[in-house]
Amino acid sequence: LPCPAGAEELRPYTVNGDAIAESLTGAPGDATRGRTLVLERTNTCILCHSGPFPEEKFQGDLAPNLAGSGGRWSAAQLRLRLVDASRLNPATIMPSYYRLDGLDRVAPNWRDKPILSAEQIEDIVAYLATLRE
């Protein structure tokens, strides 16, 4: 079936425990691109997080430092944390980057699309997995 105009279908995924084992795209992401995506302010990560980014002067401190996240979590666990962190902690302030339901009063220009695409999620997962302190 064709999608409604402007809407982006989410790819199906399976949650096992606190993880999504399979890549959302069926292919591994690109860690170099992932680092760039994390540092882009419009993707919002560094508004809240700090990390091993010596070149970036303005980093947030609302959330844990991303350094070492690949040591603390597997790629599969990182994937669920990006897709929908609220499944793990319903009170979290971390947005669900790959979710369309359960949102209220979304501005028209952001409506019906996830914050990040499946490809972007995979690139970021690949990058975070390299952060082993």
Partner: peptide
């Protein structure tokens, strides 16, 4: 509310000592 699913309170009551 919004695509980021935040309330004003999440920042201004719960995190006002942060950046």
């Amino acid at each position: 509310q919004g695509q980021l699913n935040l309330g004003c309170t999440n920042c201004h009551d719960d995190n006002w000592d942060k950046h």
